[in-house]
């Protein structure tokens, strides 16, 4: 019966809409203010602040932070560069491919290795999650 099929389709469509809408409401997105503030913290005078900010942006995984993270690939601190690469790899932003390719020539071997892993993640070859949090500072105690 075409009419019952239509009704079924309508019900299905409605339910998927309702479900996706409900889900969008129950999972609050990270506020844009958080991302902006953390992107600013990538320019902090203290390297540990920059490292933690890059880690946090990698957790948040917002496309909005990619430009700031790409800029952090030129940071003087190698841990900041590594952490920024890890974050970009998690966001899987194709926009960052050129910057990551440049990072393959970084002076530090760990930075180069992270860049290769991040590129693999962006190109969908897994790449895993090699540095879930490589810089836990003594203050950031695991709970």
């Amino acid at each position: 019966m075409p009419s019952s099929a239509k009704i079924l389709a309508a019900v299905l469509l409605a339910s998927t809409f309702v479900c996706s809408h409900a889900q969008a409401q129950t999972v609050p997105a990270v506020p844009a203010a958080t991302i902006t503030a953390l992107a600013d913290a990538l320019k902090d005078s203290d390297a540990e602040v920059r490292r933690q900010a890059a880690w946090a942006l990698g957790r948040i995984r917002s496309e909005q932070s990619v430009d700031a993270l790409i800029a952090a690939l030129r940071d003087s601190d190698q841990e900041v560069r590594k952490q920024a690469i890890w974050a970009i790899g998690r966001i899987r932003s194709p926009k960052a491919v050129d910057a990551l390719t440049a990072a393959l020539k970084d002076s530090n071997i760990e930075v180069r290795r992270s860049a290769a892993q991040a590129l693999a993640q962006i190109y969908g070859h897994g790449g895993g999650n090699p540095n879930p949090n490589p810089n836990p500072n003594p203050g950031t105690r695991p709970f």
């Binding site: 953390l38 203290d46 602040v49 933690q52 946090a56 942006l57 203050g139 950031t140």
Partner: peptide, 11 residues
């Protein structure tokens, strides 16, 4: 630094 970490932990 700790605040940056915390914001990542809450996300």
């Amino acid at each position: 630094a700790q605040a940056a970490w915390a914001l990542g932990a809450i996300a």
